[in-house]
Design a protein around this nucleic acid. Structure first.
Length: 479
RNA sequence: GGCCCGUUGGAGAAGCGGCUUAACUCACCAGCCUUUCACGCUGGCAUUCACGGGUUCGAAUCCCGUACGGGUCACCA
């Protein structure tokens, strides 16, 4: 069997993380099975279409490394791939249903329908289905929509790839609109027809679509077409367990934003692939090839996928660590330039700055934050670091080190290393008792990057100033 | 409210009737390495799988119910 899957976005804006997941899983599924991955544009909501929405979708997908085998301008064997260019097709099929008596024209206005629904609500009805008032009504010279005549008491069972057996009853579905008054088909109608004509074998989409499935199934039945296999992936939820809403500010939701922040495409690909899927392998870091190889639709999860920001940070950090220094510099440089950081410094300084922070970076732009925390914070000593400064000999060690630094005109990292060593010898301190007090004295913290490199970056003036500050602190604490 | 779905450690997440004294990852803690930090390595961290009942020789895994959470009910997709 030839596997053909599709990702069918509406060009209503940027690529959302949830849609990216849908695209990615379809892509993995296709590649794993040697099938075809198609991108179809569902632009039947002309109100919401945004300019360059299509380009934006395709571009963001390309950035992620998800390339369609078939779409606008690529291998157009089953085109066109924009629904607005397929209007005559839908019209033809709608007409066929009308002729067969499987659909009917509805002349109700939006206001009438709303009033009807409101009345049902008042009456406490569970099902707010269309009253069928236009079913069998005579032809009128008024604008009309076309409704599907939903068969009564009919079950629509299907085997869902991820959920297993699912069944909906037609009694829970009202006669729904297949062609709007403006002549454009609704999503469920166009989708079913295209899936058939494009010979889609598997439909992998978000769980929020599961109640659409019976509607699409009845279209297939009405035409006597063979149905694709459906699979509904669990939703992506936030840490409150709620579906990611585009309004939710707590999570960055658009691929473009991640790109702008300096996340790496490979890392994003990796991270997104773990949203509702777990490969049969240990660990969390996988290359594209591994993911294609490991992808199995059986391993799609049935419980909601939590968007774990910590995991994203961890994964991206792992990919940044694996980058060469040059690539990391290239990644970070624009963000520093944007903030006007290091403008007057040379390239060596830039390289050593990035080298020092490379391993702690979760995303490119974070370099700015790390830089600011490191250089700009008013110098203060962490609470948990203060005790160490009270140890015997520490004051003498720091004073000694300060004198040595002041005697050196412009020490580099290696020189600092030698100065630390010399200070240790002179003040008779070694190991942790040598490095830690100096670390605290110049950074205020017990943790941080490599000490000599860090001091070189800080520069001699700041180093001496901080040593002075620490000495004053120790002196004050003695009294 | 109707219809669908979910509930495993501090966090993510496997397992879906006996191989589980619940994988893996993050976080955390300890040790080793490093004259410091970080990296790396090693070890520790759920007597227990929302709750109640049932089926079974045996249940996190199957069934029923309860609670909680979520999705969906448009001339949006």
């Amino acid at each position: 069997m030839t596997i053909r899957v599709r990702y069918a976005p509406s060009p209503t804006g940027h690529l959302h993380i949830g849609n990216a997941r849908t695209a990615l899983f379809n892509y993995l599924f296709a590649k794993h099975k040697n099938g075809t991955f198609i991108v179809r544009i569902e632009d039947t909501d002309t109100e919401r279409n945004v300019e360059s929405g299509i380009e934006s979708q395709l571009e963001q997908l390309a950035w992620l490394g998800i390339t369609p085998d078939e779409t606008i301008g690529v291998n157009e064997t089953h085109g066109p791939y924009r629904q607005l260019e397929r209007l005559d097709i839908y019209t033809r099929y709608a007409k066929e249903l009308l002729e067969k008596g499987l659909a009917y024209k509805c002349y109700c206005t939006k206001e009438e329908l709303e009033a009807e629904r409101e009345a049902m609500r008042q009456a406490g009805e569970d099902k707010l289905h269309y009253s069928r008032k236009c079913l069998g009504a005579p032809e009128q010279d008024k604008p009309f929509a076309i409704r599907f005549k939903v068969p009564e008491n009919t079950a629509f069972p299907f085997t869902d790839i991820v959920k297993g057996g699912v069944r909906f009853s037609s009694d829970d579905i009202g006669d729904w609109v297949i062609v709007k008054q403006n002549g454009i088909p609704t999503y469920n109608f166009a989708c079913a027809i295209d899936d058939h004509l494009m010979e889609i074998s598997h439909v992998l989409r978000g769980e929020d679509h599961i109640t659409n499935t019976p509607k699409q199934l009845m279209v297939f039945d009405a035409f006597g077409w063979a149905k694709p296999t459906y699979g509904h992936m669990t939703l992506i939820v936030n840490d409150q367990g709620k579906k990611l809403s585009k309004r939710d500010q707590s999570i960055i939701q658009y691929i473009e934003q991640y790109r702008d922040l300096g996340y790496l495409p490979d890392a994003m690909f990796n991270f997104i692939s773990l949203l509702g899927f777990s490969p049969d392998a240990d660990g969390e870091i996988f290359t594209r090839e591994q993911l294609i190889d490991l992808f199995e639709e059986r391993r799609l999860s049935t419980s909601p996928a939590t968007f774990d920001a910590n995991k994203l940070a961890f994964i991206n950090n792992r990919y940044i660590k694996a980058l060469s220094l040059d690539d990391t510099v290239a990644l970070c440089k624009p963000y520093l330039a944007e903030e006007g950081i290091g403008q007057e410094k040379d390239n060596d300084w830039l390289e050593s700055l990035i080298a020092v922070f490379k391993d702690r970076l979760s995303y490119g732009k974070e370099i700015v934050k790390l830089y600011n925390d490191f250089f700009n914070r008013p110098f203060k000593i962490d609470e948990d670091a203060k005790d160490m400064l009270q140890e015997d000999g520490v004051e003498n060690l720091i004073a000694t080190f300060k004198r040595l630094v002041e005697n050196d005109a412009s020490p580099d990292a290696d020189a600092y290393k030698a100065l630390i060593k010399a200070a240790g010898k002179e003040a008779n301190m070694k190991g942790k008792m040598l490095f830690m007090p100096i670390r605290i004295a110049v950074s205020g913290a017990m943790h941080g990057p490599d000490l000599p490199k860090m001091m070189h970056l800080l520069g001699r003036d700041l180093v001496t100033k901080r040593l002075e500050h620490t000495l004053a602190f120790i002196g004050a604490a003695d009294k």
